[in-house]
């Protein structure tokens, strides 16, 4: 058969290949089955479930989140040594009103070593105190006021180095007329201490007991008091009237 046109040419190929067959290898069907099983087992990523779980987690976190509390800093007792010129004299022109102003300017955490008696020879220590130290300072202030009333001088005052807890005594000794001011300071510190106790974060069973006892027992030394230590809650203070115990670390 002679072929001249493109149509005839194409027809030859069509006739030859329209029913053309080739036997595939047996592995071809195995490959198809494996591919079908693979596609079947490949489930789509559960975006909806992931979104729902995330939302639930966020809501749970918000539900159990503690109320927003202000940040409170608890620093270590840090002692700075400030050299003071030996035998420094208090200026004569310092008058009582000025001293009163200076007293008012003193913050609870930082004290200035300016009105130091001449007896202090070499150094004084300025202390940045944590809240816990206030109790001792308060006790010291009250004790010194009492001592001053009796006309006696606190024994610590004669020492060359004045500790921070003894600072109010220094003022008392230097200015005997400041008795009322010191009493007010002591009262203010007492109120502040009570407030800080009330604000204290309740983290453990000991804190709960402290809170309840604090509401019932208004004494400074509670009938029982717990402190949070590394090993857990420990009894830091007991006050049964005659029988008293108080931890030094408190």
């Amino acid at each position: 058969m002679s072929i001249t046109s493109d149509k005839e040419f194409d027809k030859v190929f069509k006739d030859r290949f329209d029913s053309f067959e080739l036997d595939p290898p047996p592995a071809a069907w195995t490959g198809i089955v494996q591919e079908l099983d693979r596609v079947k087992s490949k489930k789509p990523f559960p975006y909806v479930w992931v979104a729902a779980a995330s939302l639930a987690a966020v809501l749970t976190a918000l539900w159990f989140a503690p109320p927003n509390e202000g940040m409170r800093l608890h620093g270590k007792t840090e002692v700075q040594q400030v050299p003071v010129e030996a035998n420094r004299e208090i200026p004569a022109e310092v008058t009582e009103p000025e001293t009163t102003q200076m007293m008012a300017a003193i913050t609870p955490v930082e004290e200035i070593a300016a009105p130091v008696p001449a007896q202090i020879k070499s150094k004084i220590r300025v202390s940045i105190e944590p809240e816990g130290a206030k109790v001792e300072r308060e006790e010291s202030s009250i004790a010194l006021v009492a001592a001053e009333t009796e006309g006696e001088r606190a024994p610590e005052l004669t020492e060359a180095t004045a500790l921070p807890e003894e600072r109010p005594a220094t003022f008392t000794q230097a200015r005997p007329s400041r008795k009322e001011t010191l009493t007010m300071l002591a009262a203010a510190e007492e109120a502040e201490l009570e407030e800080s106790r009330a604000r204290r974060k309740i983290k453990s069973v000991g804190d709960i007991v402290n809170f309840v006892v604090g509401k019932v027992d208004k004494r400074k030394d509670k009938i029982i008091e717990f402190a949070n230590e590394e090993e857990g809650n420990v009894v830091s203070g007991i006050n049964l009237g005659l029988l008293q115990f108080k931890s030094k670390e408190k």
Binding site: S19, F20, E21, L22, D23, P24, A28, W29, V33, L36
Partner: peptide, 21 residues
């Protein structure tokens, strides 16, 4: 799967003839 396999066996040779071109 049985129907799929039968269909494949029935048409695979012819379809391989198509693909080969």
């Amino acid at each position: 799967r049985r129907a799929q396999e039968l269909l494949y066996k029935m048409l695979a040779s012819r379809m391989l003839g198509v693909c080969t071109r």
